[in-house]
Design a protein around this nucleic acid. Structure first.
Lengths: 157, 157
DNA sequence: GTATTTGCAAAAGCTTTGCTGCAAC
DNA sequence: GTTGCAGCAAAGCTTTTGCAAATAC
């Protein structure tokens, strides 16, 4: 176990009915070393409970999203139109997705916090969700094959 | 005509073959008073050229996106999984979408520009696209029906 | 004249839904 | 015991693709 089950505890605290499927899904999201889309989440969760259905995955995602317990990402649609999920943390972070190699890096900054405050204050806008996603070329890809962006496509497959 | 055809001119400058369909689509995006999704763009563009096909819309969007001439938005998926498009402007802006009434407000800030610089510098990341989307409650909805968030759902239908 | 683009129609990909039986409290 | 949830399968919505005919330069 990589950390204590914050998400699970929080779900429980909110009075969410904890079925065995939800438990498996929540634990899967919490333990995932990378961002999972619905299909990947289903596959991973089935290792804990083989009978989980796709519909349950989507319904649980929806529930957790509405409760503000998880956030939804696109990762700039670098690999299709899927959505990815992660536990919402107290400090929002930025996702940098490399359009060449697909690597995702997270980044936090006090400047981002300040910007959030400014957005809320100047627009009198009550922020519920915020998502800052960046697409571009990571330092590794920029360094390795400067003029040769084709190969990386094959490398991702 | 609301402004001069910047997008059209830019497309031409890049050597994009300007077919009549592309012209109609580009002009439609440029003149739209709101953010259009693919279906709405198709419907609007057909007023200029009734024979335009859905496939052409998607192919043109793809082309313009790859050229960095338009940006793609989700508007926090407040109305389903569509994507919305807008002309890319020199100054990136933030989209605030009200989850109650669906209103979209744009916002720019020097702080956002500074944050972009910081992201690029600290991660040695070559930013190609950046998208900051915010979901929450706009001041109008907060003021009008503070404790009664149910009705607005019906109002949007 | 030649390379690109279009329209059409079919399919693909991701997500949602109705309904019956089952599980949590 | 009651209320809400899960599984199944089918449909929904948005987007993509193959191919022959049409179009731009």
């Amino acid at each position: 176990m990589r950390h204590r089950r914050k998400l699970l505890a929080e779900a429980q605290a909110r009075g969410i009915r904890l079925t065995s499927q939800r438990r498996a899904l929540i634990e899967t999201i919490e333990d995932a070393p990378r961002h999972l889309d619905a299909a990947a989440l289903l596959a991973e969760a089935r290792k804990r409970d083989p009978d989980i259905d796709r519909a349950t995955v989507y319904r649980t995602i929806d529930l957790l999203k509405k409760q503000g317990l998880i956030d939804e990402l696109d990762l700039m649609h670098v690999e299709g139109e899927k959505h990815y999920y992660e536990v919402r943390s107290s400090r929002d972070h930025i996702h940098l997705t490399c359009v060449e190699c697909g690597a995702v890096k997270e980044f936090t900054s006090p400047l981002f916090e300040r910007l959030k405050e400014e957005i809320a204050r100047q627009n009198r806008f009550d922020i519920k969700v915020i998502r800052l996603e960046v697409g571009g070329r990571c330092s590794r890809c920029a360094g390795e094959h400067k003029a040769e962006s084709e190969r990386s496509h094959a490398a991702r497959a």
